[in-house]
């Protein structure tokens, strides 16, 4: 845990807009930021779909998917009814940690390998950074960038304390 390095952070909303991007260490600089964010969202969306599609049948879950009124023609109905299952994935060189809220926000952290389970860190970012600096900020318009100084400071502090 102590040797883990945090690479970067993304926050997406349900529509795929990147509300926040923060970079601490990125071993591969120089990519087009917008394209990178779009790819990341697409990757996560597809992985989520796969994860839910492969998951062992849970009691209630399939019944619910079948229950969805338009399950027959809406292939994504299952996504709505199934719990988000993706939490993290590990490659040989980095780890990606994922938290999706019922409101469709997606918190993504990438780190070096062996960072362990960072669900708690992502939940703290949700609770202490997003909710306090964005959702409760009356001047923040929902769905817009949350890159305020306050948010950035919170985010950095949470990540630092997790090291």
């Amino acid at each position: 845990m102590s040797t883990a390095v945090f690479y970067n952070f993304y926050l997406f909303n349900r529509e795929g807009a990147c509300l926040c991007y923060r970079e601490w260490n990125r071993p591969r600089p120089g990519v087009d930021a917008l394209q990178d964010q779009r790819n990341m969202f697409g990757l996560l969306f597809a992985m989520k779909q796969l994860c839910n599609g492969w998951a062992p049948v849970e009691e209630g879950a399939t019944a619910l998917a079948a229950e969805a009124p338009d399950a027959a023609w809406d292939p994504d109905a299952r996504l709505r009814t199934a719990r988000p299952l993706l939490r993290s994935y590990t490659t040989a060189s980095y780890q990606l940690h994922y938290l999706e809220t019922p409101t469709g926000l997606r918190f993504v952290l990438t780190t070096s390998v062996h960072a362990g389970d960072l669900t708690r860190v992502l939940q703290r970012i949700y609770r202490e950074a997003y909710v306090e600096c964005a959702a409760r900020n009356p001047l923040y318009r929902l769905g817009t960038s949350v890159m305020s100084d306050a948010f950035r400071k919170r985010l950095d502090a949470i990540v630092r304390s997790a090291l």
């Binding site: 409101t103 609770r127 997003y130 959702a135």
Partner: peptide, 8 residues
């Protein structure tokens, strides 16, 4: 706004 506050 309350939705996220509540869930978190």
């Amino acid at each position: 706004r309350l939705a996220d506050d509540f869930l978190a």
